[in-house]
C-alpha cells in the first residue's frame, strides 16, 4: 500500500518512520511499553505489600550488597547510552558503527545479567530461596521478570545484529532497531525503579 517513495538506493532521513509499517511498529511499541508499565507497576505493588514478610529468612537489609548492585546499575545505564549511540549511527546511516554499538550494548547487557545471576546464586546460599517467604517470592518475581526482559532483549538485539550484517540498513530493518532501542531504554528505566524501591529502600531499616 505505502509505496516507498524514497530514491532507490538512498535511505530517507528517519528510516524508521519512512513507511506506514514502520510508523505502525513504533506507535504499537510505545503502546506495548504502556502495558509493560502496568505489568511492572503491579509487580512493584505486590513486592511492596509483601517485602516485610521475611519469616525466618534473611531481611533485605542483611541481604543486599549495594556495591554489587551499584556496579550492575552502572553497567546497565551505560548500555542505555551505547544504544543511543547505535540509534545515532543509524540516523547517520553508518551501518558499521550501528552494529558496533549494538554489540557493545549486548555485551553490557550480558554482563549485567551475569552479575544478577551471581547475585541470585549468592542469595540462595544465604538462605534466601524462591520459596523461603513471601518477601523472597515477590523479590525474585519482580527482579526476575526484569532479568528475563534483559535476556529477551539480548537475544533480540543479537538477532538484529545478524540481520543488519546480512541485509544492511533499510526501511524494514530500521524500525526494528529503533523499537529494540526503545525496549532497551524501558528496561533501564524499570531497573532505576528496582534499584530505588528494592535495593535502596531495602537498606532503610
Amino acid at each position: 500500500m505505502s509505496a516507498h517513495t524514497h530514491v532507490e538506493g538512498q535511505l530517507p532521513h528517519e528510516p524508521e518512520k519512512a513507511t506506514l509499517e514502520g510508523r505502525n511498529k513504533v506507535l504499537g511499541f510505545w503502546l506495548f511499553l504502556g502495558g509493560e508499565t502496568v505489568l511492572f507497576g503491579t509487580l512493584f505493588a505486590a513486592y511492596l505489600s509483601l517485602r516485610d514478610q521475611v519469616l525466618e529468612g534473611p531481611t533485605a537489609n542483611h541481604l543486599f550488597d549495594l556495591m554489587l548492585v551499584a556496579i550492575a546499575t552502572a553497567i546497565l545505564l551505560t548500555s542505555s547510552l551505547t544504544s543511543v549511540f547505535a540509534i545515532q549511527a543509524m540516523h547517520q546511516k553508518n551501518v558499521k558503527s550501528l552494529i558496533g554499538w549494538l554489540i557493545v550494548t549486548v555485551v553490557l547487557g550480558a554482563s549485567f545479567l551475569g552479575l544478577e545471576i551471581y547475585e541470585f546464586y549468592h542469595y540462595v546460599h544465604e538462605g534466601h530461596g524462591f520459596t523461603t517467604s513471601a518477601f523472597s517470592s515477590s523479590f525474585y518475581t519482580l527482579v526476575g521478570f526484569h532479568g528475563a526482559h534483559v535476556l529477551f532483549g539480548i537475544v533480540w538485539i543479537t538477532l538484529l545484529i545478524i540481520q543488519l550484517s546480512r541485509k544492511g540498513l533499510n526501511v524494514v530493518t530500521a524500525p526494528k532497531v529503533y523499537v529494540a532501542g526503545m525496549y532497551w531504554h524501558f528496561i533501564d528505566v524499570v531497573w532505576v525503579f528496582i534499584f530505588t524501591v528494592v535495593y535502596l529502600m531495602g537498606k532503610v531499616v
Binding site: 509483601l50 520459596t131 517467604s133 517470592s137
Partner: peptide, 29 residues
C-alpha cells in the same frame, strides 16, 4: 490485562513452584 498477567503469574508460581504470594501461613496476602 497486564495486571491480570501478573496476578495469574503469581498464582501460577504459588501453585507450580511453591511461591508464597497468596499463602498467609508463609507471609503471603
Amino acid at each position: 490485562f497486564p495486571a491480570l498477567t501478573v496476578g495469574l503469574a503469581a498464582l501460577m508460581f504459588d501453585r507450580l513452584f511453591s511461591a508464597n504470594f497468596f499463602d498467609p501461613t508463609a507471609g503471603g496476602n
